[in-house]
Computed example of a mutant assay.
Amino acid sequence: MIISVAVLLIVVLILAVGWWNEVNKNQELKSQIEKYQDELSERPLPEANKESEPDEVGTFVKTRMSRPATPETYRNVFDLDVNGQRILAHLAHMYTTKSTYVRGGHDAERESCFRAGQADVVGFIYRQINKVNDPNYKQEDEVND
């Protein structure tokens, strides 16, 4: 019985010391917070000096929903405009003049598919232009490929 009372007193003493340490830590934190708040309140706020700082400049980009491109759009851009013709000729030279087939293994197959995809984009532009230049073309019959 005496041993159990002694053990109980030791446990109570340990808990009391732990509680006392927590109380002291909280008081130290509160005093540090008050110290920092006093220090911050003594500092003056920086004043904006408008003469030395230029106004912010930039470009505001607003996106808007536009109608999808029609075959006539392709004709206007790549067939009727001189700069569009130059760009289309350059794209055709860059991506349709070389063979799409590459000899080799798995990596060569991927390269072949990549080149075929590049050539197909230029081919799509030509198909859209030819669709509009067809005398039987009507805008209502338009279906995107």
Rank of each mutant, 00 (worst) to 15 (best):
H93Q: 13
T70K: 04
S41E: 11
K30R: 13
F124N: 04
M1D: 06
V23M: 09
K62V: 14
F60G: 07
Q128M: 12
L45M: 10
N49F: 03
D120E: 12
K50L: 08
D141F: 03
I14Q: 04
P44Y: 09
L80C: 02
T96E: 14
V23P: 00
P46F: 02
N130Q: 14
W19A: 10
C113Y: 06
N136S: 14
Y74W: 09
D81L: 06
I2N: 08
T97K: 12
V132Q: 01
L88H: 03
E22M: 07
E34Y: 04
S41Y: 05
K131Q: 14
T70G: 00
A16N: 09
L13F: 13
I125C: 04
M1P: 03
K50A: 07
R43S: 08
F124V: 04
V12I: 15
D134H: 11
E42D: 14
V143P: 00
N76S: 14
N26L: 08
E72I: 08
A6K: 07
E39I: 06
I2W: 06
L91R: 01
A69S: 10
R86E: 07
N144M: 05
R127S: 10
E56A: 12
N21Q: 14
P135I: 04
L91W: 01
T70S: 09
T97A: 09
I10F: 15
M65A: 13
T59L: 14
H90C: 01
Y137E: 09
Q37K: 09
R86Y: 07
L29A: 13
V122Q: 05
V23G: 03
E28K: 12
M65P: 00
V7C: 08
D81G: 04
P135M: 01
Y137V: 01
I10A: 15
S66T: 10
K25H: 07
G123A: 09
D81N: 15
